[in-house]
Amino acid sequence: MPALTDAAISVSGLDKSFGTTKALDQLDLTVHTEEVHGFLGPNGAGKSTTIRVLLGLLRSDAGTAAVLGGDPWRDAVALHRRLSYVAGDVNLWPNLTGGEAIDLFARLRGGFDRKRRDALCDRFDLDPTKKGRTYSKGNRQKVAIVAALASDVELLVLDEPTAGLDPLMESVFAECVRELKAAGRTVLLSSHILAQVEALCDRVSIIRLGHIVESGSLSELRHLTRTTVIAETARPADRLAELPGVHDPAVHNGQLRFDVDTEQLDAVIGYLHSLGIRSLVSQPPTLEQLFMRHYGDDLNADVTTTRSA
């Protein structure tokens, strides 16, 4: 298995349609071994569809996908011994207890560790004796998380795992992910919670309309994004708007505020310097802004680019 060492998941040109709806459109995704990879996108972007293809629950229409060096459809059973999955919407059997459901998943997968499972129940403050129908949404989610973490596997595929968890439990979950990373496990974490991905992930892929629009480490992605600058200068910055890479300049109470493409930052600061800088605040882009660039304002930018081209 040659791909095993460098890529735990490698997908290229994946297409998947449901009737006339195109769920995945030429999707490429690479998750390296031993990294925590954020899979970021709004609802309906195709995150769960991608994950279902990777689990061999759906079959792709075109393209190739390899998970742990195997074919997710053909080698499903063998691969499932080496990976755990948490669904975003956990449905439990009404008449099975949470503990029974956890054991069932973990033992059907293999590599079940009873001590570890009990410790996880404690950490997540989960009562395993309650029947499935009596659990709240958050508690059902905990059952799925404990079941996934109770087995010692190489790859964890987590589809919006913290939906419905309270902030305390979210931090317990984050701790668990860091431990997995320290233990050299690979994690694919799908989410629309930006702070979570920012805090936990080494690399991020952003999906929009079934297509990966951006992929890389957080610092690599920051190269592609704009820094927000707030400055005061001795002389008015009349020519600021004409500089390349400057967006949305505005003046409030004598304070300049604008966004600048990272590659133009040096030239713009140089220009401000020539005017005499009195104060300067620069903010690196948050993931929120990064996100907005693909799903918000950048839509307009795309349109303008196409028109002017």
Binding site: G99, K130, K131
Partner: peptide, 22 residues
């Protein structure tokens, strides 16, 4: 609703035992 077993029996962890339970 009553509470139940905290852990699965060996029978439940087998696919047929699991189906039988349902």
């Amino acid at each position: 609703p009553r509470s139940g077993a905290a852990a699965a029996s060996n029978a439940l962890a087998h696919p047929i035992g699991f189906a039988l339970r349902l």
